[in-house]
Simulated scan of single mutants.
Amino acid sequence: MTPSATEVRFEVRDGVGHVLLDGPDTMNSITPQVLDALEVILDRAEADGSVRVLVIRGAGTAFSVGMDIDYLGECFADPAGVFVPFTTRFHALLDRLEALPIPVVAAVNGLARAGGLELLLACDLAVAADSARVADHHIEFGIVPGAGATVRAVRKLGDQRARELLFTGRWFTGAEMVEHGLAVRAVPADGLDEAVADLAGSMSRRSPECLASMKRLVGLAGDLAQADALAAERAEFARFHAEVPSSAEGYRAWVEKREPVWTR
């Protein structure tokens, strides 16, 4: 197997877990070793109560351009034995990322395409540099996306924009990412770190139990009929106040004129 050209680095600062895809020479391409490292990070994020938000970014000029080109050679040489198992595993990792009970932010500093786009789509929020460019590009290779693009793109962009993204392979700019629902904001490249820090910091100071419940309910909203989604919210509201010790902490802190103290 081709050695991974992308290292995955992780550190926690002030309640925010920072994931860096560090393979600038290959534009942070994805291999099985990258998935190994990301799974370890998700284990830690789930177990470590000090991690309140996860931020994913890429080194150099790309967020991630998707699968490593050399590893793709192995995949095409044995689709059933290599390619399908890899994409099945990638699917499972992105499902897990999407279900992580903390917000996940993509800091899109540059190019994101194919598997890199699919990683971006599984994040809760994205902040993009104005100079960022995002595309699917599976159509350029004449292959079907293998890690969720046809589903998550429709949910985030809507039907017509998703079809344009998937069917044409054209690049979307940072501003278009915001316009079409792929990012919450686009900023000058030299302001990306500050914008991401502001967004992540604003969430890291909130109730982690509340954020986890909200994230789960928002995820359900796209899967359920409105009446069922509203019923799920009512049930979660009742469960939250019955089972979460800090459910009244925000109210008490306001009455007592102090900052709330959240636990996870």
Rank of each mutant, 00 (worst) to 15 (best):
T2C: 08
S4D: 15
E7D: 11
V8F: 02
E11I: 00
E11D: 15
G17A: 09
G17D: 08
H18Y: 13
V19W: 04
L21Q: 01
G23Y: 02
G23P: 02
P24N: 03
P24R: 05
I30L: 14
Q33P: 01
Q33R: 11
L35G: 01
A37M: 03
E39P: 00
E39T: 13
V40L: 14
I41E: 05
L42K: 07
D48K: 11
S50P: 03
V55T: 12
A59R: 01
V65D: 08
D68P: 04
D70I: 10
L72F: 14
L72R: 11
G73R: 12
F76R: 11
F76L: 14
F76V: 14
P79L: 08
F83P: 00
V84K: 13
P85A: 09
T87Q: 14
T88A: 14
T88E: 14
R89Q: 03
F90H: 11
A92R: 14
L93K: 01
L94V: 05
R96H: 08
A99D: 15
A99K: 10
L100S: 04
L100G: 10
P101H: 06
P103N: 03
P103R: 02
V105M: 07
N109G: 15
L117S: 02
L117A: 06
E118D: 13
E118C: 05
L119K: 01
L120W: 04
A122D: 05
A122E: 06
A129W: 06
A132V: 01
A132E: 05
V134G: 00
A135H: 02
A135W: 01
H138P: 06
I139M: 12
E140C: 03
V144K: 10
P145A: 06
P145T: 05
G146K: 02
G146R: 03
A147V: 07
G148L: 01
V151K: 13
A153S: 15
R155E: 15
K156M: 14
L157N: 01
G158L: 07
D159G: 01
A162Y: 02
L165I: 02
F167Y: 12
F167G: 06
T168I: 09
W171L: 14
R185L: 14
A186E: 04
A189N: 08
G191L: 06
G191E: 13
L192E: 01
D193A: 15
D193Q: 09
V196F: 01
A197F: 00
D198Q: 13
D198L: 14
G201R: 06
G201A: 08
M203G: 00
R205C: 08
R205A: 15
R205P: 00
R206L: 15
P208E: 02
L211P: 02
M214V: 15
K215M: 11
L217Y: 10
L217E: 07
G219E: 07
G222C: 04
D228S: 12
A232V: 06
E233A: 15
R234V: 07
A235Y: 05
A235V: 10
A238T: 12
R239W: 15
F240G: 00
F240Y: 15
E243S: 09
S247G: 00
G250D: 07
V255Y: 06
V255E: 13
K257N: 13
E259M: 12
W262H: 09
